[in-house]
Design a protein around this nucleic acid. Structure first.
Length: 452
DNA sequence: CGACGGGACGC
DNA sequence: CGACGGGACGC
């Protein structure tokens, strides 16, 4: 219901380009113009007067064409006397007309900008980039707290509002600089990925504190890499940068994972290795078999090895028995009479008879088919999917992705190997958390993208 | 490799 | 303490 067509709507455009002055009843529009026109193009001056008596209320609004002009005028003119003998004036950035608030806008809200930066940017790079616009108090890059990698977003705090405004107006548009929202307002723009719930989950289910390995153990010493060993614990190594969420998502495709943690050096940097533990041997064997040498992301070969978990692997006979069990299980998984679908039971995983014959066989444990959402549902989330070598048929994709609920539509970008799975509900999930490889070697790499 | 359009901080 | 007019509206 905002009437942006009204000529008055320009008063908030651009944001923070209008000043609120507390002067004296005797100060006129002309006096204000005399003092403020040096700071930039004044679009409007309005001295507030009583409707009936026409007497000035001692306040005024000054609209500049740019926020930086308004900010500079505020910084220069606040506390000055416009006329000999009158009280010093107060100057604030005016609240936007739509806000309805009359609270003073504080410098705190006007000196910090929020920018999108290349993931490779350091805080020094940011300083170097934004110092052209004024004195920088600090630069902060938002990083993934688990891996330390940049999220490509950052804050720059300047000393003066005019400097932040200059940065917003004049920096390269690719930074998409805007004023940062004050931090105390706990923003809820983005769901936190499942890293949080995972931590809780693991703390509950596997008792991380009691786990024999901790981050400061040295896994690379001793005979812990004995390749004969079969355990529930796996180590995955990656040359390319890979996040904990990615590792988690990948190994969580095999049911039964109860622990997954990136190994870090003493500075908290990822070492390109992660530890995974399953709650049963079969899952670990299966995971190693399926994911060792797996390209993730494509082109990056993962190496998966067993890690000594301190459990009994006493006699060679016992080891053979375990291998036999594992082999049997894998055989069931892959050659079971009803296909690759698995169902979790208290003792492990058994093939499940499904009435419908799946058109696509995956190496992941798919949930049962669910009804699609009505096709006119509002799309709340899209899953971006990359296919290799070529897209799967739409009906197959519907069969696969409806199982995760609220699927509205499968959309394949014409002529491209990419598509979107549109969903009417949002999952609390992160990025890049599915990669499934179908039996016919069609790869699908799925990335969560932003909400619509 | 890849489309599109983005967005948020450990008190 | 100190907060929201007047004017006229464009493919």
């Amino acid at each position: 219901m905002e009437d942006n067509t009204k000529p008055s709507s320009y008063l908030d455009d651009p944001p923070n380009s209008r000043l609120f002055l507390v002067t004296s009843k005797s100060i006129t529009e002309d006096t204000i113009r005399d003092h403020f026109s040096t700071f930039g193009e004044i679009q409007d001056i309005w001295v507030v007067k009583d409707k009936h008596t026409k007497e000035s209320k001692g306040v005024a609004f000054v609209k500049f064409s740019k926020s930086s002009q308004a900010c500079t005028a505020m910084e220069e003119m606040h506390g000055k006397c416009l006329v000999e003998g009158t009280k010093p004036i107060k100057v604030f950035i005016a609240q936007s007309r739509s806000s309805g608030s009359h609270r003073d806008v504080e410098d705190e809200e006007l000196t910090r900008i929020f920018v999108m930066i290349p993931k490779t940017f350091t805080e020094e790079d940011m300083k170097e980039t934004f110092k052209d616009y004024g004195d920088i108090e600090y630069c902060i890059i938002i990083k993934n707290k688990l891996t330390g990698e940049s999220k490509g977003l950052g804050y720059v705090r300047f000393h003066k509002p005019s400097q932040a405004a200059m940065a917003i107006e004049n920096c390269d548009k690719t930074f998409r600089a805007i004023l940062a929202e004050p931090r105390t307002k706990t923003s809820t723009t983005e769901n936190e990925y499942f890293g949080n719930s995972r931590s809780e989950h693991m703390a509950n289910e596997s008792g991380m504190s009691g786990y024999p390995f901790s981050a400061d153990n040295n896994y690379t010493s001793g005979d812990m890499w004995n390749s004969d060993m079969i355990t529930r614990c796996l180590m995955v190594s990656s040359r390319a940068a890979i996040t904990q969420e990615q590792v988690y998502s990948l190994f969580d495709l095999i049911p039964g994972m109860d622990y997954c943690e990136m190994q870090r050096d003493q500075y908290g940097f990822s070492k390109g290795q992660a530890m995974i533990r399953y709650n049963n041997l079969g899952s670990a064997v299966y995971a190693k078999e399926k994911l060792n040498g797996f390209e993730y992301p494509p082109g990056n070969r993962l190496v998966v090895t067993y890690v000594d978990d301190g459990e009994d692997r006493t006699s060679p006979v016992g080891k053979m028995a375990m291998q036999l069990v594992a082999a049997q299980m894998m055989s069931m998984v892959w050659n079971g009479p009803t296909g690759p679908q698995l169902m979790k039971t208290s003792t492990g995983y058994t093939p499940v008879a499904t009435s419908q014959k799946p058109r696509v066989q995956t190496d992941v444990n798919l949930p049962p088919v669910k009804k699609m959402a009505p096709s006119d549902s509002v799309v709340k989330e899209r899953l971006f999917v990359i296919f290799n070598p070529s897209p799967l048929p739409v009906d197959v994709l519907e069969d696969v992705f409806c199982r995760f609920g609220s699927l509205v539509e499968v959309y394949l970008v014409p002529g491209r190997n990419v598509g979107y799975m549109k969903k009417s509900l949002t999952n609390v999930r992160g990025h890049t958390n599915i990669q499934c490889r179908t039996r016919d070697l069609n790869d699908m790499t799925c990335y969560m993208t932003g909400r619509t």
